[in-house]
Design a protein around this nucleic acid. Structure first.
Lengths: 116, 116
DNA sequence: TAAATGCGCAACCGATGGTTGCGCATTGAG
DNA sequence: CTCAATGCGCAACCATCGGTTGCGCATTTA
């Protein structure tokens, strides 16, 4: 609940899911189950090389895993890691929410004290 | 629950809170209640101009509001907008979580069907 | 009135998201 | 078996962005 709570969040993970294109790629992978740099490029209307770079980032962040199949390189979501990412996401959200509520309580207390 | 659910999320909002420095700035503002470009610069050990740019982004995203006070420009969190942001954050999280669970259910069903 | 403080604008630098272009490996049709 | 087609990797290039330094202007204060 202190500052370290948020600072401790993995920045790589955040920058991985902070990018809109990567979010849409994760979305596509969740829906389709798997995909290659080429198919994802078609799906998202960007270049194959573009998606390839993003897939590299996501793979380094551990969110997806690749399995070579002939001349294709098939990517799919790493369920465990992805679940961990979602958990961290909601963790920061609830931390902020709690802090916001606490601030409001204090503000109300101060205002009430001034009214006395 | 479809693709539009996630695509509809405000990209500006995401890029606003996607940056680690901006997250820490929001954190500092939540804790301290308010701050200027200079004070935040000291607090986060980066330049005043750096924080000034970030404050501009956050202000354009509607997460903070500025009130000029003499030669100072005092920023504070816009509670309503910030609460909305946190809500969207957790919304995407739960959407992904739901999708992940659904995928797992389908995978299990397929596997069970193959076992028959 | 002059020093100090806070801000804005502009130029610059490294990293990153995106592109094009090339070459190599695997596949599949003749 | 050969060769076009397909999928990938590497490299160069460009725009944007996070961050810096440097300057000038406004406001405060000594």
């Amino acid at each position: 609940m202190n500052a370290a709570t948020i600072d401790a969040v993995d920045d790589d993970l955040w920058s991985a899911i902070g990018d809109p294109t990567r979010r849409r790629m994760l979305d596509a992978l969740l829906i389709d189950g798997a995909g290659t740099a080429t198919t994802l490029g078609h799906r998202l209307a960007i270049t194959r090389q573009g998606t390839a770079k993003h897939l590299g980032v996501l793979e380094r962040a551990g969110l997806v895993r690749a399995t070579p199949a002939g001349r294709e390189k098939r990517y799919r979501i790493d369920d465990a890691q992805f679940a961990r990412a979602v958990a961290q996401l909601s963790s920061v959200g609830s931390a902020w929410d709690a802090r916001l509520r606490r601030i409001k309580r204090i503000a109300e207390a101060i205002q009430q004290a001034q009214n006395d």
